[in-house]
């Protein structure tokens, strides 16, 4: 099989000095990166140097947000190196769907989450609604503290009524910090559509929570309204933790 000439041109432009290897088994879109991966597997020293710089860069980018202490970055960098190059080399699996950089980030994040998993979630739930926002109003503070547990249960139930896509989109934006445009790209929609989806999900979430609460608690409509107002104003603060705690 002869290589497309545009792949070789792209290789020269993006990874100068890397020799094109003929044995490429994938038919991805990113020819330059596929050729780089193939050259790495053929032990081209220059290609390996590029790859290593890429790993160092991308692991840092992907793992730093997960790990404020940065203790993980070095460890994951090493893990990714081993995983990609030690036999059987995972690098052979890279199929050129998207850039090698983003593929490496995906690999790195999964390895990082494996490494830090134990105990991470407990903290998130514990520190839930201790936000000082409504504390100026003692009545609301009382409402909040008394019904915190009920609210959390109701919210979790309401999250369950959303579709998988709605939940994933909310988490990608609220927890993972992606923009509406980035999420939109996954679904072939523009940013404003995603933004509309998100705000309607948010409204649905609040309405469902309210319904569930009105069934489970004997509250007057006005007290319920107050509680929901607090919930609404604090939703952005607590949505991350609430969403996180409803994953299983």
């Amino acid at each position: 099989m002869s290589l497309p000439t545009e792949w070789i041109a792209a290789l020269e432009a993006r990874w100068p000095g890397v020799r094109a290897v003929d044995s490429v088994s994938h038919q991805g879109e990113d020819g330059a990166d596929l050729l780089l991966a193939a050259a790495c597997l053929a032990k081209d020293p220059r290609a390996l140097a590029y790859l290593d710089a890429l790993i160092v860069n991308e692991v840092r980018r992907a793992v730093s947000p997960l790990d404020t202490t940065n203790a993980l970055v070095d460890e994951v960098t090493q893990l990714v190196r081993e995983r990609l190059l030690m036999p059987p080399p995972r690098l052979a699996e890279y199929s050129g769907q998207g850039s090698l950089a983003s593929w490496i980030r995906a690999v790195a994040v999964r390895l990082a989450l494996n490494a830090k998993r134990p105990g991470a979630r407990e903290d998130a739930v514990e520190e839930l609604p201790e936000t000082p926002l409504a504390d100026a109003d003692p009545e609301l503070a009382l409402l909040r503290s008394r019904y915190r547990e009920s609210f959390r249960t109701a919210f979790a139930e309401a999250v369950g009524t959303l579709t998988p896509r709605e939940r994933t989109m909310m988490r990608l934006t609220a927890l993972d910090g992606l923009t509406c445009a980035q999420v939109g790209q996954m679904y072939g929609k523009d940013a404003s559509t995603v933004s509309r989806w998100l705000s309607s999900s948010r409204a649905v979430l609040l309405e469902k929570t309210r319904q569930i609460l009105s069934h489970s608690l004997a509250l007057s409509p006005s007290a319920l309204d107050s509680l929901m107002r607090v919930a609404d104003s604090e939703l952005d603060l607590s949505i991350s933790r609430l969403l996180e705690s409803t994953i299983d």
């Binding site: 998207g98 950089a101 983003s102 995906a106 690999v107 994040v109 999964r110 989450l113 790209q185």
Partner: peptide
Amino acid sequence: EAHLDGCERCRRAVAAAASEQ
């Protein structure tokens, strides 16, 4: 989508891959 809904690891991996843009 169904998988990402329940698997935090994969969802975060998707987010990391997408953050390129």
